[in-house]
Amino acid sequence: MIYLELFWSYFQIGLFSIGGGYAAMPLIQNQVVEIHSWLTMTQFADIVTIAEMTPGPIAINSATFVGIMVAGLPGAIVATLGCVFPSCVIVMTLAYIYYRFRRLRIVQGVLAGLRPAVIAMIASAGINLFFTAVYGTTSLPADPGRINIAALIIFLCAFFVLRKWKITPIKVMAGSGIAGLILFSLF
């Protein structure tokens, strides 16, 4: 039953992506690419790119995208529901406890323990995307010399600009897109 699988996968993504922002990314890759093979790594990289360029959280964006790819509009609705369901229950419970007791020490402790792990997992997913960008595979190939120089240059420039001037990601993305169009058609 595809709808149930979609719901359950996105339920897990919603439940275990703690720490906001990009924390959902490794989980999405794990569920959607590795476990269920609903998307290829290229399609996953595409949806991460699209999510970065469009409003909305990456988990919701990918739920809609994967749902439509796998089971049409109903699939998208089911995946999105699965994704927000854990939030609804947990956030309302936490809010209730919070307003009642005004302290969430244990929750903060869990969060503090999780944060380094979440960063490590985002780093790992980032490395996958980097390899996809410069090698076309998610891991280091046997011949690291077969690197796409143009892609590496765009990556390095984007990275430099981000670190140096703290420009908004959306501008960096737009610039990288234009640079890609020019450099990749030249080489």
């Binding site: 595409d46 991460v48 996809t132 892609a151 897109g177």
Partner: peptide, 13 residues
């Protein structure tokens, strides 16, 4: 363009 943007996303991450 998408291939270029992917390099940008990797840098953002």
């Amino acid at each position: 363009v998408m291939a270029g943007m992917l390099c940008g996303v990797a840098a953002v991450i």
